[in-house]
Computed example of a mutant assay.
Amino acid sequence: MNIGFIGYGEVGKEMSKGLSNYEVNNIFAYDPLLMDARPGILSKNTKLTYFQDANELSKQHMTILFVAVPASKSVEVWSDIRETINKETILVDLTTASSNEKNNINKIMEEKGMSILDAAILGALKVYQNAVPILVSGKHADNLIDIAPKIGMNITKLNENVGDATNFKYIRSIFTKGLSALLYEVMESAEKLDIDQEIYHSITDTMDKDDFGEIINRYIKSNVKHSKRREKEMENVSEFMKDNNIKTYMTDATISKLKDITQADLEDNLHDKNYHWIDVIRAFNQK
Results as ranks from 00 to 15, higher is better:
Val11Asp: 02
Gly12Met: 07
Gly12Ile: 07
Lys13Pro: 00
Lys13Met: 09
Val24Gln: 04
Ala29Val: 00
Pro32Asp: 04
Leu33Ser: 12
Arg38Gly: 01
Pro39Cys: 00
Ser43Thr: 01
Lys44Gly: 02
Thr46Lys: 06
Leu48Asn: 03
Leu48Val: 01
Thr49Arg: 12
Gln60Trp: 01
Met62Pro: 01
Ala71Cys: 08
Ser74Trp: 01
Val77Lys: 04
Ser79Tyr: 02
Leu91Ser: 08
Leu91Glu: 03
Thr96Ala: 13
Asn100Lys: 15
Lys102Val: 08
Asn103Ala: 01
Asn106Gly: 08
Ile108Thr: 11
Met109Gln: 11
Met114Trp: 02
Ser115Met: 08
Ile116Ser: 12
Leu117Cys: 04
Ala124His: 06
Val132Ser: 10
Pro133Phe: 13
Leu135Cys: 10
Val136Leu: 12
Asn143Val: 00
Asn143Glu: 12
Leu144Phe: 06
Leu144Arg: 11
Lys150Trp: 01
Thr156Ile: 12
Asn159Cys: 11
Glu160Trp: 01
Glu160Arg: 11
Gly163Ala: 03
Arg172His: 13
Lys177Ser: 01
Ala181Asp: 09
Leu182Asn: 05
Glu185Trp: 06
Ser189Gly: 11
Ser189Met: 04
Ile195Leu: 04
Asp196Asn: 12
Ser202Lys: 09
Ser202Glu: 11
Thr204Arg: 13
Lys209Phe: 12
Arg218Pro: 00
Asn223Thr: 11
Arg229Ala: 09
Arg229Asp: 11
Met241Asp: 02
Met241Lys: 09
Thr248Val: 14
Tyr249Pro: 00
Lys257Cys: 04
Leu258Ser: 14
Lys259Glu: 14
Ala264Cys: 04
Leu266Trp: 00
Asp268Glu: 13
Val280Leu: 04
